[in-house]
Write a protein that binds this DNA or RNA. Structure first.
Lengths: 335, 335
DNA sequence: GTGAAAGCGCTAACAT
DNA sequence: ATGTTAGCGCTTTCAC
């Protein structure tokens, strides 16, 4: 009931319980050597005071905070991010880790935020669809902070990463388009800065040309809806018109479908095939029914969690390339 | 180059710079009284050591951490959340505040996570589409931690909140449906536990009945796509069939549109009107062109930020009800 | 099993 | 303007 200025400390609890402050600490440390009796006294006193151990103080001593830093770049409108964030939140919460989250705008690196994160002595760092300057990355490693590049190739190979098998997915999509009889597929690219975008593009093109097709037409969509709308418009206005459009993510592919259907009056699949990448929730909606390469959010998050939670200070840099599953749908069904 | 076990401290910097440890502290405290000369020495030493002030230590003393806790409930698939989170991230980052984020699953309260947040001595708390037990809420207030209920009515009126004008939005939608000539509008409700859902529903129903219509048919969609699909199916199978469906959020309305269009072969607008609430990005896509009540994410986030950043310890509990803008679109255009 | 004491890295008086 | 000193709330030896 009484309004205090500062929360009760272990000392306060100790007074009330009639024990030493150290005993209070032990009572709240699982596995510490303390008599059941003393612990009960402490707990009762703690409860009556509304005591909660100050994690800042504990972290100060232990040198680690129980906090994992997450920095994401790219387009926040992309539903894929929210799925990943949500899965990560649930996964790390099981490991009693908390997430300090940041976003970087545009093509900037995560550097500014990582500086802050280091000041909080975070236990690990996850960089999602964004990069870090090699210098800072090295400082993190020297400080013993595991850093995971998620959805982006790391600046140097000795940093851990979790990446989808972008080139393979792109290859499968290309192969499927060929088998469906499309002969003039075009590409909507992402961003030159993004390794993910580059891989999804080059894997696609490589397969097409290996099968004797010429370099496909290409426009840049910047991973954004706006960009994809314009890219699709330009591509579909060309003569001869591409008979298929592959976008390096679903988010852009949905835009392409709408341009083709509502602006050009084309029937998706029969008159123009559209394919994406990610298998976001909307891809399976009847309005789109988008052919795509499905990334299992659970499995990439699991991989990332393993790397993040690895023994602190002595992480083994690793790279996992997570395979997805090709999902043919109506958007590339010719008949 | 050398791999250290623990990061350099202010003491280390002081040694190298040939000053006292306090001087180092001052050098990194904006506005502290320190000679430009000394500061330079400190900065040089700091840079050479790769020193970064330990924010945990600073927070321990200051009693506040620079961290704001955000707990969100509801359906993480709802794009509205990501927009809000993103806007909040940008807004708070300007105030040099960081966000520790949590999610609660199902109908649970935010209690577990708030316990953790209190242990980190967060400066403020934002609860989005979720609630807190009155007891914990009071403990937060007693600890001087501002707590904002976002998108949810607080357990007691003396807690701050930022809420959209749900009843008014619902009223405008009802009025619009009437004017468009719809006479048998049905409702897809949210969750009984959600004040937002209840307000959006009751505001709608209240206006209809005030205009002489009978209580509308009603199904529960639980704010989820799955739930909305089923609700829409049930409603559209009734005889006589409702001539309009109002869903208490856009996310569910998109599902309703697809059921009506692809499963019942109905023409949206002419044969069945569909309206939502929120104005998420997809609402304006040509595939849906959904009539809705538009909430400005920027403005609600601004409101929330003002409350969050209010003088710590002495926040003035306040309630802002943010008006939106009614957006008539083709999904309720009769002709 | 328990208490006393040292100290994590920093800020904030208090001197000078 | 700068150094000295005393903590912030905890964990961790080290005695006992």
């Amino acid at each position: 009931m009484s309004r205090r200025t500062s929360p009760p400390s272990a000392h306060d609890v100790a007074r009330v319980a009639g024990v030493s402050q150290a005993a209070v600490s032990r009572a709240f440390t699982p596995g510490a050597s303390i008599a059941k009796d003393t612990q009960d006294k402490v707990f009762r006193a703690a409860k009556s005071l509304g005591y909660r151990p100050n994690l800042l103080a504990r972290s100060l001593i232990m040198g680690q905070s129980g906090i994992v830093g997450v920095v994401y770049g790219g387009n926040p409108r992309n539903p894929f991010f929210m799925s990943v964030l949500d899965a990560l939140l649930k996964r790390l919460s099981r490991a009693r880790k908390h997430i300090l989250i940041f976003t970087v705008e545009g093509h900037a690196t995560a550097d500014v935020h990582v500086e802050d994160l280091l000041k909080y002595r975070v236990d690990a760092l996850l960089l999602m669809a964004t990069t870090l300057s090699p210098k800072l990355a090295e400082q993190c490693r020297d400080a013993g902070i595991p850093i995971i590049f998620f959805n982006r190739r790391p600046p140097k190979k000795d940093f851990a990463s979790v990446i989808e098998n972008n080139r393979e997915g792109a290859r499968q999509i290309a192969e499927h388009l060929l088998q469906q009889g499309y002969r003039r597929p075009a590409v909507v690219a992402g961003l030159a800065e993004s390794s993910t975008g580059r891989d999804r593009e080059s894997g696609f093109i490589a397969h097409l040309t290996s099968q004797g097709l010429p370099e496909p037409e290409r426009e840049v969509g910047y991973f954004q809806r706006e960009g994809a709308l314009q890219a699709a418009r330009k591509l579909l206005a060309r003569k001869p018109r591409p008979d298929a459009i592959y976008c390096v993510n679903d988010h852009m592919a949905l835009a392409a479908i709408e341009v083709a259907r509502y602006e050009f009056g084309l029937e998706i699949g029969r008159q123009v095939g559209v394919a994406g990448f990610d298998d976001i929730e909307q891809a399976s909606w009847p309005s789109f029914d988008l052919t795509t390469y499905s990334i299992s959010v659970e499995s990439i998050v699991d991989q990332a969690a393993m790397l993040l939670l690895g023994t602190p200070g002595h992480e083994i840099p690793r790279h996992s390339v997570v395979d997805g599953v090709f999902k043919p749908r109506r958007s590339t069904q010719r008949v």
